[in-house]
Amino acid sequence: MTGASRARMHQLEREGDRPAKRVNKLLSDQETMIGAVLLGNNLINILASALATQVLTTLIPGPWGVAVATAAMTVLILIFAEVLPKTLAIVRSDDVARALSAPTLFIVRLFGPIIYAIQWIVRRTLRVFGVKLDMAVDVLAAHEEIRGAVDYHHSEGLVETDDRRMLGGVLDLSDMDVSEIMVHRKSMVLLDAGLPARELVDAVLEAQHTRIPLYRDQPDNIVGVLHARDLLKALAECPTGVEGLDIAAILREPWFIPDATNLKDQLNAFLKRKNHFALVVDEYGALQGLVTLEDILEEIVGEIEDEHDTTLDGVRRQGDGSVNVDGHVTVRDLNRAMDWRLPEGEAVTIAGLVIHEAQMIPEPGQTFIFYRHRFQVLRRQRNQITALRISARLDDDSDA
C-alpha cells in the first residue's frame, strides 16, 4: 500500500477505478492502515504458531515437538508470510495494492477501534520520554516526497538536469522570500521626479528597463513608476513635444510589498493584480529593492535572457576549472550556472556566504575552504566583497 504510486492511484480514481479509490482512502489515514495490517499479521502468525505447536506436540511429545513446530513455522512464516508476499508487493505494488484494497479496508474497519486505542497508548508512552506526537502526524511531506522522486529519477538518467531544476524551483517558491531574489536598491535605476522632462526622457532611453521608479527629494520617497510604454504614448499625443510632457500625470501608482513575502504568494499576487513590478520595503518602510514577475519565473526556468542581458553576468570561467565571481552573484544562480550544491539557506549572495562562514569581513588575498570549494577574496570595496575566485570541487573534506 505504501509503495503504490499516489499519482497513478489519483489518476485512476478520477477515471472511475473503484480499487484505486479504496487505496487512496486507506492512504489518507496511513498510520491506522499500517496498524491494522500489523495487528492482523501478528494475530495470524501467533495463532498459526500456537496451533502448529499444539498439533506437533501431540504427535511428537516433549521438547522435540516444540522444536519441530518452531522450526517448521519459522520456515513457513519467513517464506510464505514475509519474503514471498513482500517481494511480490514491491515488484508490482500498484497491482497488489488495488487487488488487496477491499480486504485491507475491511480489516481497517474491523480493527479500527483497537488501533486507535493502541495509538493512544503509544503516544502516552512516548510522551513520558519527551516525544510528543499529534494524532495527524504526516510521515512524509508531499514536497520532500516529490523532490526525492525527482532526484532519484535524475540520478537514474530519466530526468534531465534542466527539468530537475525547474521542478525543484517550483517546490522552492514557498520556502523563499522576495528579499532573496530582489534587485537590491544599490543596483536599482532610480530617477529624480524633479528633473526636467527632456532629461527624464533621455534617462529612460538609456536605461535597460521598461519600468523605472521615480523619487522626490530622497530615494526612499518613491512617488511613482514610469513605464516606457506610457511615456511613448504621451510623447505621441503631446502637441508641444518633449518639453510639454507632464511626467507626473503618466506615473503609475507604486506597489510596495514587505521583504518577508514568500515567492509563491507574490507570484499569485502578480497574477491577480496583473502587475509585474513591485517595490520591496523592510519593516520600517525603508526601500530595500524591487522584484518583478520575471525574477520569480527565473527561479523556476533559469535565467531569461534578452537583448539587454549578459550571459552569466558576474561569473567568468577560468582555464583551471575555477571561476571568478562578482560578490553580488547569488548562490542560487552560481549553483545553476556551475551545477554545484553550495547551501542556499545561509546567505543570498556568494559574498554573504563567505562572510557567514568566515564570521568576519575578509581582506583581499585571504583564502577559505568550505563545502569542498576554495574561496579566495580578490577585491573588497570598503566592507563589501566585490570579487572572488572559487575553485572547482575539491576531493578532500578539509575545512578552514
Rank of each mutant, 00 (worst) to 15 (best):
D313W: 07
A50D: 02
P63S: 15
D29K: 07
L353E: 01
G345M: 14
R18M: 05
D95V: 13
F129V: 15
V323R: 01
F270I: 05
L231K: 03
E243V: 10
R123A: 03
R18K: 11
S398E: 06
I361E: 03
A52V: 07
Q376A: 07
D134K: 15
I350A: 05
G194C: 08
A142M: 09
A347G: 07
V178P: 01
Q11Y: 09
V280F: 14
E307Y: 08
L173W: 15
S187G: 06
R374T: 12
E82L: 11
V323W: 05
R123H: 04
I296L: 13
V170W: 10
E294M: 11
T104W: 02
E237R: 15
T310L: 05
N268G: 12
D217A: 11
H276C: 05
D326W: 04
A20I: 03
Q208K: 15
A69Q: 04
R332V: 08
S187V: 01
N335G: 07
D95K: 11
A286E: 09
V183I: 12
R127M: 10
F368A: 05
V139I: 10
I212T: 09
D17M: 10
H209E: 11
L334Y: 13
T261S: 05
I114G: 04
G40V: 14
T240G: 01
D320K: 04
L173R: 12
H10E: 07
S398C: 02
S28I: 00
P364H: 08
S49F: 05
L27C: 04
R316Q: 06
G35I: 07
A67E: 07
E13M: 11
K132F: 09
A358G: 02
I181G: 01
L105M: 07
G112N: 06
D397N: 12
V225G: 00
D192H: 02
A20C: 09
I46M: 06
V128C: 01
P85K: 11
R380L: 10
